[in-house]
Design a protein around this nucleic acid. Structure first.
Lengths: 237, 237
DNA sequence: TGATATTTGTGCGTATGTATC
DNA sequence: AGATACATACGCACAAATATC
């Protein structure tokens, strides 16, 4: 078996340092020469690690000045009420969304099952990109029964907010039944959107949101950039 | 109503076979030609069924080798009470643990902070491997304040159970404060223990367990093989 | 303002192990 | 087995941008 490249372990070590807030956002990392000394390697090897982290958007360097922490991993609470806008704002970051596609089509088998629909029933599909402080955090796909929310897509394109769109459809509140989490590797398209290297770790969550009567109203899948997000369970859930 | 396609019934028949453990994980299914004979259909029809199952992740095929039963992802509930033995048994699988190392040493900075200790206080460290149905699913490290649980390591080595060891130390119940989840890539050593390719996606969770008075008693980190585990939040949490 | 030290960016050369043809 | 390509890692030198006194 091939052993892990030194530059990769250095990258994870530094990533860990940043995640554990040993370096804060905006802080300058030690100079490359110092890091090379600390890890006992050549400066090139440190540079390879920093390049990887820069590709992931974790740091950025300024010639003559130093290497700076671009972003600390965002905390994203998972619980009964999952609201993107709230989650990001509460962490002191600025949330934003980009619509990739919206369409209305027949539900696939798994989608229909999740929403309690019959196979072939129509659904609204909302593909998008979530950002925090301008940096892409996650790709998501939200699926709604179109029977129940006929004119929903227009509101969604206006406000980009699931909560707002559902509210206009008469849903005052909704809660998350269950969230399922697995780890995957980024495909080429995912990597492109999230601006991470291909094959980088991805947190995939799937969840079903229900209205007050326990009726499923949204089947959502989200692919988080693993380096930039920490999902949290409990605490304030 | 159109009657179900033949390929679909074949897919469900084979899925049933796998669910009833007639074929175990990792087993090779009979060759497509043999399956075609068994079901009395053309090989193309069998292939359509296998394609559906492969899309669902149930099997995967290797050209020239055969079609193999993919490991069924283990559901692992994350919530207030996280118990490895319970979690695995409830899913109908057989839990097991392997001790890798146990030691008592001074706490690192982050560990001390998590447990509410002073820097340099002594802690018990328990490194191990968790298995379900004989297949490794996670590496873990549990850290306990040694002041409070002096003779804990012996019990731990006997029973391999955190819950049992804590019980013998007078802790009847404990709950999880918060769980933090990120995605990483497997290092060489992790890959070796978990028997996954290096760089494969890993789910890393960190959590703090507290006693009835909210006093931290365990700081635990776990690295799940992302392909083999689905963390679930809510539902029965 | 201006000289100087620091720090990143770039280029070239060398060596080694691994995978592939 | 041999040839070839590729990734990793080290070492040295210098250019360019920035910080500091």
């Amino acid at each position: 078996m091939a052993r892990t490249p030194v530059w990769k372990s250095i990258a994870t070590a530094l990533t860990e340092d940043i995640a554990q807030a040993r370096y804060d956002t905006g802080d300058k990392l030690p100079a490359e020469a110092q890091l090379a000394a600390r890890f006992g390697v050549n400066r090139h090897t440190v540079r390879r690690a920093l390049a990887e982290m820069a590709a992931g958007g974790l740091v950025h360097s300024r010639r003559g000045a130093g290497v700076f922490v671009a972003a600390r991993p965002t905390d994203y609470p998972i619980g009964k009420r999952v609201r993107f806008h709230q989650n990001i704002s509460k962490g002191g970051q600025t949330p934003a969304k980009q619509i990739l596609t919206t369409e209305t089509r027949a539900a696939a088998e798994g989608e229909a099952a999740a929403l309690g629909l019959a196979a072939g029933d129509m659904v609204h599909v909302y593909d998008g990109l979530s950002l925090a402080d301008g940096q892409p955090i996650a790709l998501f796909q939200s699926i709604f029964p179109s029977d129940r929310f006929p004119g929903m897509l227009e509101t969604l394109e206006e406000t980009q907010s699931v909560t707002a769109a559902l509210k206009r459809c008469g849903i005052e509140d909704y809660t998350r039944l269950e969230t399922r989490i697995t780890a995957r590797q980024a495909t080429a398209t995912q990597a492109l959107h999230l601006r991470i290297p291909e094959g980088a770790p991805i947190l995939r969550t799937t969840g079903i949101n229900v209205d007050g009567n326990g009726q499923p109203i949204e089947y959502g899948r989200t692919w988080f950039a693993g380096d930039r997000v920490t999902l949290t369970v409990g605490g304030d859930a």
